[in-house]
Design a protein around this nucleic acid. Structure first.
Length: 576
RNA sequence: GCGUCCGUAGCUCAAUUGGAUAGAGCUUCUGACUUCGGAUCAGAAGGUUACAGGUUCGAUUCCUGUCGGACGCACCA
């Protein structure tokens, strides 16, 4: 059975169409009430419709109300305020939904009726550089969006667009050929490559001849010089080992990893095509696309070929789009990058409009703000270096370990370490996903690892506490909880049930707006509702019928918490 | 100069097509353990949503202006 809100929504849309046959009912949605005193669900869409048609909103609400038959689901439906419809769900309908989920049915969400194919481009680290804190938001956000869309039944292609081509390889090649420390490369390949780059960078600042040499090496690489290609491929391979290690640690998976260099053969034909179609024109020796018709881009033409004849990242991104369209025929391509690239994406989307105006694909730049230090400046080490991702994850686990050892000293050290790993990783991920992605946020170990407030450890604790009930009561969750009849007596039980039922609405909002923070806030609210239930409703010592019902409610809550955290890429623990 | 984003409680942050009384945590104060994990919970205090206008039945949300901040603006990606 579809979720209750969907059933109401469908019938509401039918009723609206009966009253206003030409209305666009896609925007006629049913939402949870902000305050339970209004009911369980509401719609405010009728006021919007009335406004657009200059109708009296209360009258429209009354007309729609007259066509609505919800007696099987709702105890009552009210017209309220300026034209809200408030729906009070029958207790029995809520119970039926809970029992269906407890009996193994879907967990308060259903697969999309129109599955889409979505390519998600995120993480995008650079060859020969350590992944640092700047990569974390893209990686975590992109992974979470991919997980959400997959759970909702969409076809998702995660594509890691590695930075494996560009001018930095001139300097790297000079360094590799003249200054390579083989032992250091073996011990720490990334560290050695970073050292080489910095070294040559310094040398070329002092000596123009070094800079020229780097330029020459780059040209040789671009022309296909055998030795340079070999070295370049080795740098990529060494870097990929590092990427794989970090992604495995983070639990992030890519379906496809194609570096920028993969698209090199397509660049010149692409430029020719753009010029041939009159989309790109020559300007100051370069090939440029102008946007006279777009006010915000009028002053910002896009360069697709530099005056030296080389393509740039705009060209590469366009070639990448073409490849993705041919390969997967996506309904949607999502780019998860920081907000500083907004102009760039406006440009390539606008070029794409001119170039492939027939394509229906939805292009989305899902951008995010910066991570700041406690001083409000970009997050760096004390000495001003960028913070390496491995160091960050190590420190998270270390800090978590201190707390675990203190709170739970009876566990073995191995157990403590595993718990600390999960908590530390969860804390880092959650603190990245919780803020509205477009705002900058201040990085704080103490806040993300706190056991109070809206944090991953708090949610993991809520989960562990539920699991503890089943351990203590010596009941297997499945065995005892599944067949139970559910009773909603205490107000805390009703509130918790209402929250559980809204899981699917939240998942859909996350997928629609690309905002996992909606889910974070939902899970925190859910944990709060559970705690109120936990404080007020005895489970194990309740009368048999009530006990079985409450165990089932506990199990459903645990499952939603686990599923929700999983969508955020965060693991749960049986004990912590 | 132009553009994008932002300005919400002392601090860090929320707020679901514009929606009903703007919510949390931290901090401060007051309480709650013969009860399932006190790694918890309850209560109190804290607001002219930067400012001034406008649109609307209704604005943190949309429009205009001012102030303040971050970021970006053709041959790096």
């Amino acid at each position: 059975m579809p979720p209750i809100n969907k059933l109401i929504e469908l019938r509401l849309q039918e009723a609206v169409l009966a009253v206003l046959p030409d209305a666009d009912v896609a925007s006629v949605l049913v939402r949870p009430c902000p305050d339970p005193k209004f009911g369980d669900y509401q719609t405010n869409a009728l006021m919007g419709l009335a406004k657009a048609r200059k109708l009296n909103p209360r009258q429209l609400a009354a007309d729609v109300f007259a066509r609505l038959n919800l007696t099987d689901l709702c105890e009552r439906v009210e017209i309220a305020g300026a034209g809200f419809l408030n729906f009070h769900i029958k207790r029995q309908a809520q119970v039926a939904a809970l029992e269906a989920a407890a009996a193994g049915g879907p967990l308060f969400f259903e697969p999309a009726d129109k599955p889409r194919t979505v390519v998600i481009d995120f993480s995008s680290p650079n060859v020969a550089k350590a992944m640092h804190v700047g990569h974390i938001r893209s990686t975590i956000l992109g992974d979470s969006l991919a997980r959400t869309l997959r759970l909702l039944g969409h076809r998702v292609v995660t594509d890691n667009h590695i930075g494996d081509w560009g001018t930095q390889f001139g300097k790297l090649l000079v360094g590799w050929k003249l200054h390579l420390d083989a032992a250091a490369l073996k011990a720490d390949p990334i560290g050695e490559m970073e050292r080489l780059y910095k070294l040559v960078n310094r040398l070329s600042e002092a000596d123009p001849a070094v800079l020229e040499e780097a330029r020459q090496e780059l040209v040789r690489l671009q022309r296909g010089d055998e030795e340079n290609l070999r070295i370049w491929r080795e740098m990529i391979a060494l870097s990929q080992v590092q990427f794989d290690t970090i992604y495995e640690r983070l639990g992030v998976r890519f379906d496809v990893t194609l570096g920028e260099s993969f698209y090199n053969p397509r660049l010149q034909p692409l430029v020719q095509e753009l010029v041939g179609k009159g989309i790109a024109v020559e300007s100051e020796g370069a090939k440029v696309v102008f946007f006279e018709e777009i006010p915000t881009l009028k002053a910002h033409p896009a360069l697709v070929q530099k005056s030296d004849g080389a393509a740039n990242y705009t060209t590469t991104d366009l070639a990448t789009m073409a490849h993705r369209l041919e390969t997967w025929k996506p309904d949607e391509i999502v780019y998860v990058t920081d907000g500083r690239q907004q102009l760039h994406f406006q440009q390539i989307f606008a070029v794409f409009q001119k170039w492939r105006s027939g394509e229906k694909v939805r292009l989305a730049h899902v951008w995010f703000g910066s991570i700041l230090g406690e001083d409000g400046k970009p997050f760096k080490t004390r000495s001003g270096e960028t913070i390496k991702l491995t160091d960050l994850l190590d420190e998270a686990a270390e800090r978590a370990l201190k707390t675990v050892a203190e709170k739970n000293p009876t566990l073995t050290e191995a157990e403590q370490r595993e718990i600390a790993r999960v908590i530390g990783l969860g804390a880092v991920k959650y603190s990245d996903l919780l803020p509205n992605r477009q705002s900058d946020y201040v990085f704080s170990w103490d806040k993300m690892l706190a056991l109070n407030g809206n944090t991953a450890p708090y949610l993991q604790y809520a989960y562990a506490r539920i699991r503890s009930i089943f351990r203590k009561g010596n009941v297997g969750a499945e065995a005892e909880a599944a067949p139970a009849r559910i009773l909603l007596d205490a107000p805390q039980e009703v509130a918790l049930a209402r929250r559980l039922l809204n899981f699917g609405i939240i998942l859909e909002a996350v997928a629609e707006e690309y905002r996992p923070n909606f889910l974070c806030n939902y899970l925190y609210d859910l944990a709060g509702d559970f705690t109120a239930f936990y404080e007020n409703c005895q489970v194990l010592k309740a009368e048999p019928e009530s006990r079985a019902s409450r165990l089932a409610i506990c199990d459903l809550t645990a499952r939603v918490l686990k599923q929700g955290l999983d969508v955020l890429g965060i693991e749960t623990l049986e004990q912590m």
